[in-house]
């Protein structure tokens, strides 16, 4: 039972690290703000969820699991909004936004 628990936790954490790696790669490879925000927002949300689930398997007791759940909720509330605001500022202030993408006015 213990071994299965640790195996599951390790699998989840490794998957999270893989997604974090993709996010970092995308953050450095993409040139434009909106592409980079897209990578940072989506991959970070998924990866932090995976890592936290892995840590829940490791932790075992209920108190730690609930605390990790709170961390996930906080990240899922704040990360999309922060990314949304960065995109909004870019669309509102970039004078040549039409060159990069189509914008609904």
């Amino acid at each position: 039972m213990e071994q299965i628990r640790f195996l599951l936790g390790t699998i989840f954490i490794l998957a999270g690290l893989f997604v974090f790696g993709i996010a970092t790669l995308g953050l450095f490879r993409f040139r434009y703000v909106l592409n980079r925000v897209h990578v940072a927002a989506k991959c970070d949300s998924l990866a932090s969820l995976l890592v936290c689930v892995g840590l829940m398997f490791y932790a075992g007791n209920l108190g730690s699991i609930l605390k990790l759940l709170l961390v996930v909720i906080l990240i899922w509330l704040s990360n999309p909004v922060a990314s949304h605001l960065v995109c909004k500022i870019e669309v509102e202030t970039n004078k040549e936004i039409e060159k990069e993408c189509e914008v609904e006015r």
Partner: peptide, 14 residues
């Protein structure tokens, strides 16, 4: 204040 609905709702909650 900010002209963004998601930010307003999330900050009102948190």
């Amino acid at each position: 204040g900010i002209r963004s609905l998601p930010a307003k709702v999330i900050v009102a909650i948190t």
